[in-house]
Computed example of a mutant assay.
Amino acid sequence: MNILFVNANLNGHINPTLGLVKKLTEKGNQVSYFCSESFSEQVTKMGAKWIGFSNKLDLFLKEYRPTDRHPFFMLMEYMLLYDEAVLPEILEIIKEDQYDMIICDSYFGGACFLKQIVKVPVVCSHSSFAMSKTPVPERMLVPGFHPQLDHCYQILKRICESYNIEEPSLEQVFTSKGDLNIVYTTQDFNGDDGVYEPDYLFAGPSIERIQEADDLDLSVVGERKLIYISLGSLNTAFLDFYKTCISAFRNTDYYVCMSIGKKCEVSQLGEIPQNFLVKNFLPQLEILKRADVFITHAGFNSVNEALYFGVPMLALPQVNDQHMVAKRLVSMELGMSESIKELSPETLRSKTEALIMDKKIKENCMKISREMRNLTESEQTVWKLEKFVDTWKERK
């Protein structure tokens, strides 16, 4: 197969796809991957050909400013404006080559519009929870409810008139259901009764991504319990939180690896205790292989990676789907959740120690770990994609 993969410029959307890209290319399929230049090495190492953004799309990503700050409508507005900017580029790429299938990110790829425009199957790549409905009540999608909502309807109408296609509902745009869909977790963890096979393929997390070189030596941990702390790669300006972590675990019998991101400096934390390793970046996958507890922002990708290795989590959600992820962890007894704003050293330490001692949570994490390993090690996702394309061609 000749496949076009469409994505954007965020770790949480691209990293989950890399394992799938590698499996596709290893099976002899050709994959062209459209994304920002910062991920060009990642995708080419997986065997794909990289296709970069135009200056126009780069400019949009840098200059976009929301018309208001409503959490849901701001996301919808961004999705729609991104779709409007990216669709001409995708269609130009398609003119230059004959593709058997397009796989596009559910937020960054315009799947809802593409499947009406192109004559090949459009598969949606869901880097977070796949949803069968919007997370807001229907009354909030009625025109006139909010000025930013009305702006979304204006963009939607403009896109559909440009391509002379039927106007989908905003719910259809948001849920972004393709002709087929890929979700990078288990069906159980996804937790939406309206999302099920065969329309959705549950592929498990990707652990194929390239990590920056790091002289990490975990032999210093010895027999101690290892606590891993990271708030991801975007919202990391939490200096007080990092100081709270040091206060909570200073000179304890635990060894702590703490990644603080690029918005704080290690020097701002004062003296680092001997049982701490603190850096702006740490190789997450390597640490998760050995970690006993993960204190996390509850990003969907990070959580799935931790579950792959059977690591219980203390979730400290901040934005977007992180609150949903944290609730899912708690409801499935895979971890605990706290507010980062109300966290004291005493609470942080007691919650972490409770997780270390909780045998039920550890058993549940190991159970879902086995399920995820079965999914990621299986060739079923690639086989089902190939079969889907063959069936599509026969039907057409």
Rank of each mutant, 00 (worst) to 15 (best):
Val319Met: 13
Ile272Leu: 04
Ser369Lys: 03
Glu286Lys: 15
Met372Arg: 01
Ile287Val: 08
Lys362Met: 12
Leu285Val: 14
Leu343Gln: 09
Ala298Pro: 00
Lys289Cys: 01
Pro283Asp: 04
Ile340Trp: 06
Glu305Phe: 01
Thr347Asp: 14
Val325Met: 03
Glu286Gly: 12
Pro345Val: 03
Met313Pro: 06
Asn301Ile: 09
Phe281Met: 10
His323Ile: 14
Ala326Gly: 10
Ala291Val: 07
Thr296Phe: 02
Thr296Tyr: 01
Glu305His: 00
Asp292Thr: 04
Glu371Val: 10
Lys359Ile: 13
Gln268Thr: 10
Asn374Gln: 15
Ser344Val: 08
Arg373Tyr: 08
Leu307Val: 03
Glu305Asn: 00
Gln284Met: 13
Asn301Phe: 06
Asn280Gln: 15
Glu346Met: 13
Ser337Lys: 09
Pro312Ala: 02
Arg328Val: 05
Ile272Tyr: 01
Glu333Tyr: 13
Met313Val: 12
Leu314Ala: 03
Val319Ile: 14
Val325Arg: 01
Asp292Trp: 06
Phe300Asn: 07
Glu346Ile: 10
Leu334Asp: 07
Leu316Tyr: 04
Gly299Val: 07
Ile287Asn: 01
Val330Pro: 08
His297Phe: 02
Val293Gln: 07
Val293Tyr: 07
Gln274Asn: 15
Val278Met: 00
Lys279Arg: 15
Ile361His: 06
Ala326His: 05
Arg349Glu: 02
Ala306Ile: 08
Leu329Phe: 06
